[in-house]
């Protein structure tokens, strides 16, 4: 739990990514290029040249193909039980990665698990992102009592470790033991660090001259927030989204392992497969290894992409001058 939080702290703390700010290195580059590249082109260029980020992207695309196109090729579903092929080891005809105790195909299970985990991530981001952005933007832009009030609320929720908050809430909703339920609960409480990141960026950005200029020209608060401030925090927002997505997958697995996640009958997720596999570590090792490795790969891929994006948005980090 602490590890995940620290990861996100890293994302927030290290990130002076203010794409709007003048770049010290830009002038040097311009001498060699005939046509100036736009901000966006530079960022894409830096990302596509970044080995770490590209490795993550390639891994992620492969996982997407595996999860969404694989089932079409494979043609099997995880729900099919086969009483004559229970606990068969990998390599058995028709069961490339083996089967579990009630004869379900592990390969099909992994494909479905990848789908479900990505569904949980999507749900989480769709809920948590607007919440965090809204709270952080309001607190950072208006300051004063709005800031104090909202940030004290965030502080209060953070006095309990996130995993514990999720456990206590989930224990009150036994019907939430599905990917849908877990995604929603994760989303409702996963925005706290985003709010802090957005707030701190807004606090400094709102003092900039261009905000003052917009004010002077009669721009409304909402126009300044949406047209001027949010585009300038885009880097942090994207980095948060990738890193938080990886954390959401890990949190789902943790919740499921403890019995408060995807634990309903006939429910699947990568976390569920890994949790079930842990019980079978010594007797049917394939049920232990493959789901664990799948989960590892998907989290790794997303984290690497996040790292690449952070570097792409933060040119100052590229060169060490000492």
């Amino acid at each position: 739990m602490a590890t995940t939080q620290a990861t996100q702290d890293t994302a927030g703390g290290v990130l002076p990514a203010t794409p709007g700010a003048p770049q010290s290195g830009g002038g040097v580059e311009r001498e060699f290029t005939v046509k100036a590249r736009s901000q966006r082109q530079q960022i894409f260029r830096r990302f596509f040249r970044n080995k770490v980020g590209m490795t993550g992207l390639v891994m992620f695309v492969i996982l997407l193909v595996f999860g969404f196109i694989g089932p079409l090729v494979d043609g099997k579903t995880y729900d099919t039980q086969n009483s004559s092929a229970q606990s068969v080891p990998p390599g058995t005809a028709g069961y490339l990665l083996g089967s579990d105790a009630i004869g379900r195909d592990l390969l099909a299970g992994l494909m479905q698990g990848v789908q479900r985990s990505l569904f949980i991530v999507l749900l989480f981001v769709v809920i948590a992102f607007p919440l965090g952005l809204l709270v952080g933007a309001l607190a950072g832009y208006f300051g004063k009592w709005v800031d104090s009030l909202l940030m004290r609320v965030v502080d209060l929720i953070l006095t309990v470790p996130l995993l514990v908050v999720l456990i206590v809430v989930a224990s009150n909703f036994p019907s939430s033991r599905t990917p849908l339920g877990v995604g929603i609960i994760l989303g409702l409480f996963g925005w706290l660090d985003l709010a802090r990141i957005v707030r701190s960026q807004f606090l400094s950005l709102r003092e900039k001259e261009y905000v003052e200029a917009a004010h002077a020209m009669g721009a409304s608060n909402s126009r300044i927030i949406f047209k001027h401030l949010i585009p300038n925090t885009l880097g942090s927002l994207i980095v948060w989204t990738t890193l938080a997505a990886a954390t959401a997958i890990t949190l789902e697995a943790a919740l499921t392992y403890l019995g408060f996640g995807v634990n309903g009958a006939n429910q699947t997720s990568l976390g569920r497969l890994v949790s079930d596999g842990v019980q079978a570590a010594s007797t049917r090792p394939w049920l232990f290894y493959y789901p664990g490795i799948a989960l590892l790969l998907i989290v790794l891929a997303i984290n690497l992409i996040g790292d690449g994006i952070r570097d792409a948005f933060d040119p100052s980090n590229r060169r060490v001058r000492a």
Binding site: A253, V274, V278, A281, G292, L300, N303
Partner: peptide, 22 residues
């Protein structure tokens, strides 16, 4: 080192612990 650390970060806690036990 980065690669090694990223793998550790991506490891599900309980899976890693089970691996150690095993």
């Amino acid at each position: 080192l980065t690669f090694f650390v990223y793998i550790l970060i991506a490891l599900p806690t309980f899976w890693f612990a089970a691996l150690l036990k095993e």
